[in-house]
Design a protein around this nucleic acid. Structure first.
Lengths: 197, 197, 197, 197
DNA sequence: AATGAATGAGGGTTCATTCAT
DNA sequence: TATGAATGAACCCTCATTCAT
């Protein structure tokens, strides 16, 4: 991104990226409203006023980070499940992809789902986007869903489940090995909490 | 409660209750940090300074509301599932109880699980309590759990699922009839998202 | 004082004395403006409102303590020096009396002269009273004063000297034995800081 | 001072100086705790928040003023007495320097020694510094001190004397001509309050 | 484009004082 | 007379945002 365009354009883009990176790290650590625009600027190595040359305000930047993170996650999930014809296989791949995302971007997990989930304070809940995508996916495979399972409710439930488990896991990955978390997530989705028919 | 003790004691307790009620409603609507101690006092019909005769600060009151709500919810769930011997029956009753709680106390649902879930900002995550209770319950029925389902992960997943579904539902109960939500929740817990063995 | 009058009068006087005692101790320890009327009341074992049944406000009580302390000190000094015909003897007795006062009432020393000498904030400086008394005393012995020593200046200087030395001494009496302090005070007054004529 | 560096640096230093000047004047007139940070800012012609860009809080600024004033006074006294070999001459020069200081900086006299001498509320007594310097000076001339005069006590006594006399004098310089005050101060230090051997 | 000093509204909190009981 | 809950003005301090350089 910062490698195209004229020199001033490149420099501007670079500053912007630094601000985004600084903000992402700070938001993940302390939550939207415990982070000041001065701190973000300092973290990016620029002056306080520079922040406002790139973003209207703190919330706009937060929004941008959240929506970009969501779009990235959605794309990863899409790619991971695209080629799965068997619904069970889709569940497995989706779960694995979620854990990979968590391993690679624990900062984004914290921002999207975490503790101080102020992400939700951006008007309509930001997760709605992810949920609607999942709902659509579930409806596509409607024939494979249990009879009394409403896809919209299921989508909310699954995203809630993911959010909670990922947040908990990135908070202290040592608490459980990836394999355990993955198997449990899959198990829950494939057969619920009760063993046997 | 406020009907015992001397006149000033009664009056004091009454004011406290008014403050708690005012705060509960405001927190549910706008979240911890968008509510000021002045607003809480005004909502309770008392002067700003009165707030501090009853609570050290806004956070202490928030904590109190959250922990009391959690304790109440836990007790309801406990009672609802205590006499269920069949694990499937326990799941059904628990789910029904959750929806009843949501119908009766949508304000508490919003505070505990909702949008601006700043409840989490109170040091350790407040839901841990609920999760540990659920984990213990699941371990009691360990024999009935699927083999590869770790109870701790399951507890987090279920609470996450509840949180998300209840928040969504209380936000606009018309979106889905209680029956639909209940059946979907039960279905998910009993057999996951895939139909058939 | 509290032993005369009818029962309710006695009780009222007792409460008043308790408030004075509590305030004296607190003022000595923390200074006028770091002590609240609630603290004084609590220290006296009465309710907050009771304070205002006995004193118009915190400052009035402070004033009362200060002026009573000053009057007491003046009286002690007067008595101690009354019978001294030799001016040197008067200096010696006065100094000794000051140290006795400090030993007995370090709380009053702190209030009158000490650290947070807010005593001074009561309109005209409260020490003026003491100073004028000393000035008068010096003028009486005018014949014995050095020629170029203006009694008014001398009175200020001596009271300043006492204030500082007593404050320092009561703050940590172990720093110097009474004898040393006394001799030094006397020496200074009798012959200044230079040895010999 | 404010004439070097870049434009913003100059401006910053200027604002700081204005705040210090405003605060010095206000503290001298009303005492630390009757002056608000808003008043200081207003007096400096800046907005309330600006105060906190330059000082952590009111007390830090007060400290700074007090310690700078003390350092300045100490240096003046040092310089004034450095070349005096005769101890009597040292006393004379020191006293004259004190009165000059009072004439030039009555605001600082009021802050350091005056009415609302809250300077003392800054942890250890601020005058300790001055006293220790004087004590050291007295010990250097130990041979010239009266036998029974402990230097530490003398240092406290002299500083107390200065404090009181200067405060009184700057409060209304008309009460006594400089010459009278100076002669009295010198007389007291050279031969005490009693005439003759 | 970048700087960083300045702004000022707004929230948190204290506490002297009042007043119904 | 005593109580203690309540009042509300006043202060401290932060921080999102602006703007002259």
């Amino acid at each position: 991104m910062s490698s195209t365009g004229s020199a001033p354009t490149r420099s501007r883009a670079l500053t912007r990226e630094r601000l985004v990176a600084s903000a992402t790290s700070l938001f993940a650590g302390h939550g939207l409203h415990h982070v000041t625009s001065h701190e973000i600027a300092r973290g990016a190595g620029v002056a306080a006023g520079t922040f406002y040359l790139h973003f209207k305000d703190k919330h706009e930047l937060f929004r941008e980070i959240v929506f970009e993170a969501l779009a990235g996650l959605k794309e990863r999930l899409q790619k991971a499940t695209a080629s799965a014809t068997d619904p069970r296989e889709a569940v497995r791949r989706r779960s694995a992809e979620l854990l990979s995302f968590a391993e690679e971007r624990c900062d984004l997990v914290r921002i999207l789902f975490g503790r101080n989930r102020e992400a939700a304070a951006l008007g309509a809940d930001v997760l709605d986007d992810l949920i609607r995508w999942l709902e659509a996916d579930l409806r596509l495979r409607a024939g494979t869903l249990p009879a009394r399972l409403e896809p919209l409710v299921a989508a909310h439930a699954l995203v809630g489940m993911w959010a909670r488990v990922l947040t908990w896991w990135v908070d202290a990955p040592r608490r459980a090995p990836r394999e355990t978390v993955l198997e449990s997530l899959i198990q829950l989705q494939l057969s619920g909490v009760i063993d046997g028919p």
